[in-house]
Nucleic acid binder design. Structure first.
Lengths: 355, 355
DNA sequence: TTTTTTTACGCAATCGTTGCCGAGAACGAT
DNA sequence: ATCGTTCTCGGCAACGATTGCGTAAAAAAA
């Protein structure tokens, strides 16, 4: 089938040894300029490309990095991947993407598959189901480069890149309070995820700072991050059936937010008249929704870029790295109609809260 | 840094030769059961994994397939990739994704990068800018396995998987006609793309079958497939500023449809009262839009699966394949509010047109 | 002319794995 | 006792590219 030209073919055709050809191609000074010219011209004519697999074997690195996210059909992650790709390609790395679909088992399999497949490093956002980290720890302890982004764990000491989830949660909640809402529920993902914890803390802090009592029955976890619609639907129904019904929901995730809107509409509630909604989302489509959704936007592209730069720094470092950093990027609340002022019914976009 | 255990390490530790270890691990009959047992136990204890790069070099294949699409932040493609992944994974192949961002140059670079990077085959949906195909032809002529999906070209004889774009275009247009619209405009991508051509033909056929004259000024091409908002905005403005303004738009692409909705809203038109809208889209979010969008949905996941199965068949075929097939999958029109009946103002979802 | 230096290239090992060939031992058949 | 067979296993080569080392021939220095 498909056969590429090798250094051997060139050597044979030109009556040289492979080492001479190799050195000529790399422009070594110990090859005469005539020979060099001859080799280079022949190589160009036959479109010679060094076999990257042979190089990988020799250099013990594959110039590729693995990405493990829950799903690419999520604007936050596809934007982050664009950031990853932009840096990786410029630095000569390939990107291999795999999806955990929020499943612990698939995450483990993917991580082991990628590592044994000799990627030089891993970029990971932990799945919603994952609450053990041996599969990362094993690799990390052996010196395998890993950088976590978005969803991280304290259990492993390495570079991390996150959004300021605390502030995002705080700002979103404060915005709802400013718009006149007091009974604010919080719909979030698995409680052990870093993003859930931090956004929840921001939410609670904003309530406290405004002397609003925290109502634990207003806080709902969806352990599958919205991958199972029924789980989310139950949580939403549970909220709107409470005796003391909330007048607003702050949801902490792209999929969660959109599904929540769908569930509220299915129930027949008017937004924001019956219940307001603010969510984390990176989809440009929330602008076009009915109503348009107030959302906390994360710098996904930058997060991907930063994480990739850190990973490549780890990979290319000569000695083992022991000093790790955690980079925090800022979020932005974009005010739209789903959280219009409870009294005036208007949203004040000029008051766009930038955190 | 990170060092994995090799067959040599096992051989040394056990006082055997590498070939014996290799055979023991593969369960060869010519190794005594005691030796086998010893080797296998040692390998398991130290978590031996064959080095896939060495295997690739030896077997002259990488067990990975390359995917070239315009962008993954598009539901059609992320769903297709899920389909690709599901099949590839089960068959022991890795998936390497790259994005052309609708640019011809980036597509060429990606294709060459992937091919030289020794992927065993390529799954391609052509970029909107691409109107030359040498970069595929060169590879294909050398026997390199390529399968096209969604956006294909007649220029290259290989397996292809597409949606029934003609029927999708026909059904969407017929649906608008049935709902009482007569002045139907068509917003589409670059005219040389197969999907544009086929959807346009379906559109024209439906008009003809209903004795509606085709108005060429109602047909607008966006050569960048909606990647450049200005281009699309100009096309929409041009349409609504026509003397004989259209009363409906049929748009032929995910990004085009959503941007069109945004543009119409920005202009201040009411949908469907001022102008109706039907588009191709695979986003579940169009259900939640204002208004909810009638859309033609493609079997993206199945398309990815089918294309991958065909590609793996090509890759694993012993002799050169000369018989190629083109598989056509069916589309589905999902009726929502953006194309509500012109007279009654209601959408008749029960009349859900299934093509 | 002889010695030293420089130039220009080849040999062989290496990365991890497997295929092929052959060696040595044990065993039964003649 | 001799031969052929079977069972186990080791050695070598190869996949494609790079690289340290060695060396022949040419050039320069003595």
């Amino acid at each position: 089938m498909y056969e590429a030209i090798t250094i051997k073919d060139i050597a044979k055709a030109l009556g040289l040894s492979t080492s001479t050809v190799s050195r000529a191609l790399r422009g070594s000074h110990e090859i005469s300029s005539e020979t060099k010219k001859m080799v280079i011209e022949y190589a160009e004519q036959f479109n010679y490309r060094p076999n990257p697999i042979a190089l990988s074997l020799k250099e013990r690195r594959s110039h590729s990095i693995g990405v493990v996210v829950c799903e690419i059909a999520n604007n936050f992650f596809s934007q982050a991947i664009n950031g990853i790709e932009s840096v990786a390609y410029n630095r000569g790395y390939h990107v291999i993407i795999s999806q955990s679909h929020e499943s612990y088992d698939r995450e483990v399999v993917n991580v082991e598959h990628l590592a044994s497949r000799s990627v030089d490093g891993l970029l990971v956002s932990i799945s919603a189901e994952t609450d053990r980290f041996e599969h990362f720890k094993n690799l990390h302890d052996k010196g395998f480069p890993i950088v976590f982004f978005d969803r991280i764990t304290d259990g492993i000491e390495t570079h991390k890149v996150v959004a300021d989830n605390y502030k995002g949660g705080y700002d979103a909640t404060q915005h709802l309070i400013d718009a006149g809402y007091k009974k604010i529920a919080h719909l979030t993902s698995a409680s052990h995820l870093s993003i859930s914890r931090e956004r929840l803390e921001g939410y609670k802090a904003a309530l406290r700072d405004n002397n609003i009592t925290i109502n634990e029955s207003y806080i709902k976890n969806c352990n599958h991050g919205g991958m199972i619609y029924k789980e989310l639907e139950d949580a939403v129904k549970n909220l709107v059936n409470l005796k003391d019904k909330p007048d607003a929901i702050f949801s902490a995730g792209d999929r969660l937010t959109v599904s929540c809107l769908a569930a509220l509409k299915a129930i027949g509630l008017k937004i924001p008249d019956d219940i307001a909604l603010v969510g984390f989302s990176n989809s440009p489509l929330v602008e076009l929704m009915n109503p348009s959704l107030t959302s906390v936007k994360q710098p996904a592209f930058e997060m991907g870029q930063t994480a990739t730069e850190l990973l490549i720094k780890l990979i290319e470092s000569k000695r083992a790295v022991t000093e790790f950093e955690t980079i925090v990027l800022q979020t932005e609340v974009i005010v739209r109609d789903s959280s219009a002022d409870k009294i005036t019914g208007k949203n004040n976009k000029s008051k766009k809260a930038v955190s």
